[in-house]
């Protein structure tokens, strides 16, 4: 089970320290992951607050991943893949784009803070774009602070 094994783990509590933004990024393997690799190879320094989860394609990204990430305390979520026409699987990103479009409309309607969900296309050649984007997102999330509205949901109970 996912949760059981993790209850017991030990990790120094960051809470005693200064709050740091927590950002989870869902990226495709062929474009954005490789773009982030290129940022590394090119030694472009950027903010260390993004945790990348690699999927084969943006087409694999379920909108529930985004909700799960916020449930796990993310202050921001990035979703990034290949530019249109550039998908390794020819069309996965086109399907993804429709889903993200519809789902973000739903989130926005619910008053969700849309500055915390960032969709982008970053190609394997765009290491610089990735680094710049991460810096910008981290800067914005720092400004916004912890995603209290979402994190508070846990405390609320219907009963």
């Amino acid at each position: 089970m996912v949760s059981d094994e993790m209850e017991t783990e030990g990790k120094p509590a960051l809470s005693e320290k200064e709050w740091q933004p927590k950002i989870i990024a869902f990226v495709c393997n062929w474009c954005t992951y490789a773009g982030a690799d290129l940022a590394g190879t090119s030694r472009i320094v950027y903010e260390p607050h993004v945790r990348v989860i690699k999927l084969p394609c943006t087409g694999r990204i379920d909108v529930s991943f985004i909700i799960k990430a916020f449930e796990q305390g993310a202050d921001g979520v990035m979703v990034s893949g290949c530019h249109p026409g550039d998908c390794h699987y020819t069309a996965g990103n086109y399907h993804a784009r429709r889903r993200f479009a519809g789902f973000r409309d739903l989130l926005e309607f619910c008053g969700f803070d849309m500055r915390r969900v960032i969709f982008s296309w970053v190609s394997a050649a765009e290491g610089k774009k990735w680094a710049d984007l991460v810096n910008e997102v981290v800067g914005k999330i720092r400004e916004l602070g912890p995603f209290k509205e979402y994190q508070n949901l846990l405390a609320q109970s219907a009963l």
Partner: peptide, 17 residues
């Protein structure tokens, strides 16, 4: 290799502070 259980576990692994 990328089933929902695996991806969820990855997300949940980031949930701990």
């Amino acid at each position: 290799g990328f089933n929902d259980e695996q991806v969820f576990a990855e997300i949940l692994a980031l949930g701990h502070e």
